[in-house]
Design a protein around this nucleic acid. Structure first.
Lengths: 124, 124
DNA sequence: CTCTCCTATTGACAACTGTCGATGTCAGCC
DNA sequence: GGCTGACATCGACAGTTGTCAATAGGAGAG
């Protein structure tokens, strides 16, 4: 079962399959446009999920290895198991991370296209 | 006098002149590298400054107009004068905004190259 | 079924953050 | 000098966040 970040907004999907990439997208590029209130809130939500040293290192670990299970994160992150679980949950709800349960382990991958979408929203 | 965000670290300069760009730089691209603790903290600091709807809209306003004084921000942002001042301070300390006092007004510009540096750190 | 292991959730706590009213500071104008 | 306008700082308050110990949930091994 693939764990998607089904937040209340329902349609986060910033990089759901990695194929479409930036179809309609959110957050109209920040620069060169006064940026609506809703877009600002949506972009701020993703940026807030990224704005933590532990989560940034978590992302970099997942990104470099490709796929990681939670038990392999406690050591490198130097955080307790509940804290690691908390951070993965935050990243999933922001649409940045995707978790897949296999047996007793949960394997984490980066949601494809999500970081590219953030870069685009930042004026790329 | 140009107001630069002289934080305690002293060497933030994420886009100080916009010329050198990514010489030695900070934050080694997040993806494809386990990302050191110091780099994670530095990148998280900038992202935290960006992770606020009011500040995102402030940046988009400054970016679209090019140069704005504080009194022209209270209205569009729908925030009190101390709150606007607080947000500009946060952005300056993060190296995202640059303020220049001319007469009684303070004019705000985007620090050139800073957002590009953030995009690069995010894996661009 | 029971036991073990991996992960998620809960509850609590300290630290941080966004906001505003009140006040301070400084430059220009009379 | 005194006054006005633009901005910064202070103090306070509610809301959020990162952290961990304790506990719960669930899948595989015996």
């Amino acid at each position: 079962m693939v764990v998607t970040g089904s937040t209340s907004t329902g349609d986060r999907r910033a990089g759901g399959d990695g194929k479409a990439g930036d179809s309609d997208g959110c957050a109209a590029t920040l620069v060169s446009a006064p940026l609506s209130d809703a877009d600002a809130v949506a972009l701020a939500r993703v940026l807030a999920a990224l704005a933590d040293p532990v989560r940034l290192r978590l992302i970099s670990i997942v990104s470099s290895v490709g796929e990681v299970c939670s038990c392999d994160l406690e050591g490198p992150l130097a955080r307790s198991q509940p804290t690691v679980s908390h951070h993965t949950k935050v990243l999933v709800e922001a649409g940045i991370l995707v978790g897949e349960k296999r047996g007793r382990w949960t394997w984490w991958r980066l949601a494809p296209g999500c970081l590219a979408e953030v870069r685009r929203a930042l004026g790329g």
